[in-house]
Amino acid sequence: MTSAEPFSVQRGFTLLEVLVALFVLGFGLLALAAVQLRTYSTTREAEYQSIAALHAEGLAEAMRANPKRTGVASEPWQWSHYVESTPGSAATAPSQTCSNYDATTQAFGSGSQNCNQNQVAAYDLYLFKSRLESAFPQAQEVKATVCPTNDLSVAPTLSALACDVSGALAIKIVWRAKIGREVNRQMSGDANASATRQMFYQVRFSP
């Protein structure tokens, strides 16, 4: 008497199961792509902030090296010569290139002619702005200034740098960066957001 072989049933995937699996996989890949875009945008914004902080600190050091008095010895040092009449104006090369420091006269000079404190301030601002314009990768517009500011919680923009008539000085940098329309929509919550986003950095000047 012979025993019968056990009958094995092999069952494959149905078309519906395959479609559901592909849908789940595709949804997961889309979510992963969105996370990667957001991570890229956050990384780029952190890079911009680091660049802005570095250049702002460089200007602050230059300002500390060039204080000014009106002539009264007891008067405290001040830095009003760094405040522009038109905040955020484009970088324009000054008439005096104050890049040579003369240890004998203790002054910066352009060739054989020494620069006064106002000319040094103008040259410092020119270097600050011109370096910023080339420092930001993929930035479409950059504005920077030094101006009195009472409230640093007010965000500066390219159209309004939030300067006041009086108050402690602040260094402000505003730029427009290309981050992608979808990423900007997620970050701003605006369904009509463009592919660019305004960002800013501002810090109180500390003598």
Rank of each mutant, 00 (worst) to 15 (best):
R181A: 06
P76K: 10
K68Q: 14
E133F: 03
T2S: 12
L16P: 03
V142M: 04
G109F: 09
S8P: 01
A4V: 13
W79I: 07
P137D: 10
A155F: 04
E17P: 01
L161Y: 03
R11W: 06
A170W: 03
T39L: 08
A160T: 10
Q113W: 05
V72D: 14
S153E: 03
F128A: 00
G180V: 06
Q198T: 12
A52L: 05
A56M: 03
R38A: 02
A170R: 04
T39N: 09
P87L: 00
S130M: 12
D164K: 04
A177Y: 02
S74D: 15
F7E: 10
A122R: 10
R181W: 01
R185W: 03
N114S: 14
P137R: 14
N116Q: 10
D102R: 05
L22P: 02
L15Y: 07
Q96P: 00
T149V: 15
P76Q: 12
A34K: 12
Q202D: 14
V24S: 09
A62V: 03
Y48T: 07
D190F: 08
A56P: 04
N116A: 07
T104L: 05
I179L: 15
A73S: 13
S134I: 12
E182Y: 11
G28P: 08
E45C: 01
A107S: 15
A53G: 10
P156A: 01
A90T: 13
G111H: 05
I179H: 11
K172H: 03
V165S: 15
R44I: 04
P67H: 06
T2Y: 09
